[in-house]
Design a protein around this nucleic acid. Structure first.
Lengths: 203, 203
DNA sequence: AATATTAGTTACCATAGCGTACGAAACTCC
DNA sequence: GGAGTTTCGTACGCTATGGTAACTAATATT
């Protein structure tokens, strides 16, 4: 294996990188909502014209769906990885909560993009909601698994159960993110987030 | 005071009762979202034509704003009243959580209408978000006050603080309601809700 | 160099949906 | 019953925007 250069497919090469286009779409949908952006605006943000996006992604609702998936990869995954990597459970949860509040407190793109998309009403809502549902339970399960381990290691009390702790964590985060979108100050939310850490883990 | 009949104002009487129109608007916006309904559809649901609604409420975004306020009165207030009326704190919280999950688990109008409106993007988002923010902190404060009382009466442990308990309760409910909208089964959410009661109140 | 293939762009269509102008209707008051 | 007032409904204008058709441009292959 001499080189890793992917062989160029025939035909004219794309004038933009799909993932970067999705990044722009994420920003737009996040800030303005599904009906709040027209495809043309996203196209301009990608430095391309509308039909190019239509060719690449299909229709607008499909673009949203792909953007949501991209959001999960770009925002969700790294946070979960960081959580897993941190050996101290208190620090792990605290960092997760703070990160969540911080990105949710952005002036322009507040709250959770996935939640906004799930509450929205594109043609593909069903798929988006199902995707969101899976994501939420999956993260809750990951948390639960970790809590389970920590409980067995004696780092956490026996109650509440790992499962309840996991679900509570994701639900609390959603509440925090909604309040962020509603305009409640970052400092306030950070304070709340930290108090939730001890609520879930115990002192 | 022989009768209570309000004196009719001059001019042709309204062909609909404003509050009932708002009830219809709540249903519509809740199920389909702000951009998902056109004023004409709401008008038909009220058995009236579009211009009648425009005359009565101004423009579409104002109609949403009024609908949100109406929602708070019709759905929020009675639940809070029930919470206050129930003397047993465990029962009070449990009933509140179950009621929240139950209305959020409706097939058509899932989740929390206020959250949907706050995450939406009408012209009056700012006002709606601010209204939502006030509502959320207000409910949290009411909860906190009650918890405070129960703690002083020795019905609850000293930690976590009443304030944290109150905020956690509203945030957990928001999480639950989002998951309801995402399509997670009512039974599952009810189970989670009940486990949250003991998470917040202790055993 | 000719062919095949894929992408991008300009221009356009179609439609939906917000908001309104205007005249008719229903009521109170004198 | 006429004047004044408020509301209703029909019909319309206008803009925004999702989506596409037809042509042009850039690349691989032979």
């Amino acid at each position: 294996m001499v080189t890793n250069i992917a062989k160029r497919p025939p035909g004219r090469p794309k004038g933009f990188i799909p993932d970067e286009a999705l990044d722009r779409a994420v920003e737009m949908f996040w800030e303005h909502g599904y009906e709040g952006v027209d495809v043309d605006r996203i196209a301009r943000a990608v430095n391309v014209t509308k039909p190019a996006l239509y060719r690449a992604f299909g229709d607008k609702s499909t673009l949203l769906l792909k953007a949501v998936e991209r959001y999960a990869i770009t925002y969700g995954a790294p946070r979960m990885a960081a959580f897993q990597a941190e050996p101290d459970i208190h620090k792990a949860v605290t960092a997760f909560c703070e990160a969540t509040v911080n990105t949710a407190s952005d002036e322009a793109c507040g709250g959770c993009m996935m939640a906004a998309a799930a509450l929205g009403h594109s043609e593909r809502v069903a798929e988006i909601r199902s995707y969101a549902a899976k994501g939420l339970t999956a993260t809750a399960d990951i948390f639960a698994k970790r809590f389970e381990k920590e409980m067995k290691a004696g780092h956490l009390t026996r109650t509440p159960s790992a499962k309840v702790r996991g679900r509570a964590l994701v639900d609390l985060m959603q509440g925090l993110q909604l309040r962020a979108r509603a305009g409640i100050a970052r400092e306030q939310l950070l304070q709340d987030a930290r108090s939730y850490v001890t609520l879930i883990l115990g002192k």
